[in-house]
Simulated assay, not measured.
Amino acid sequence: MKTTNDQFYIEKVLKGDANAFAFLVDSYKKMIFTLAFKMTKNREEAEEICQDAFIKAY
């Protein structure tokens, strides 16, 4: 189940494991970019939104 897998990596991130965060970014970057692109209709803005979102999440 994906939620259980995500929870495992979230717990590792909370303990300071940056590699675990990279796994989460890889898992969700396409979905977040797609949503941002649908909202902005601009590739550069969508990429910036994705980057900002992951920075805030970290």
Rank of each mutant, 00 (worst) to 15 (best):
K41H: 10
F23A: 04
E44Y: 14
N42D: 15
M1L: 10
F23P: 01
V13N: 05
M31E: 15
K12S: 01
A20N: 09
K12I: 05
R43W: 03
T40V: 01
A46P: 03
K2R: 15
I10N: 01
Q7T: 09
L35Q: 07
F33P: 07
D17M: 02
A22S: 04
K15I: 01
N42M: 06
V25P: 00
E47R: 11
K56D: 12
E45Q: 12
Y28K: 13
T34H: 13
Y28L: 12
L24Y: 06
A36T: 07
K15W: 03
A46Y: 07
N5W: 04
K56F: 07
K29Q: 08
A22I: 07
E11L: 06
K29S: 08
G16M: 07
M1A: 14
A20W: 09
T3E: 14
D6I: 06
T4E: 15
D52E: 15
D6S: 09
T3W: 03
D26V: 00
A18C: 07
L35M: 10
K29G: 11
Q7H: 05
T3H: 12
Y9S: 00
V25S: 03
F23K: 00
D6C: 02
Y58C: 06
S27V: 03
K15H: 08
A20D: 08
N5Y: 12
K15V: 00
F33D: 10
T4N: 13
K56T: 09
K30P: 02
Y9A: 00
T4M: 05
E11G: 01
A53C: 05
T3G: 06
D26Q: 13
I55H: 00
Q7C: 00
E48Y: 05
L14N: 14
A46H: 10
R43Y: 12
F54Y: 02
F37L: 11
K15L: 11
K15P: 06
F21R: 02
G16Y: 02
N5H: 10
I49C: 06
A20H: 04
N42H: 12
E11V: 09
F8A: 04
Y58L: 14
K38Q: 13
A22N: 12
K12P: 04
V25I: 13
K41N: 15
N42W: 04
D52C: 10
Q51E: 08
E45R: 10
L14C: 09
D52K: 12
Y9H: 11
N42S: 09
E47S: 04
F33N: 08
A53F: 08
L14Q: 15
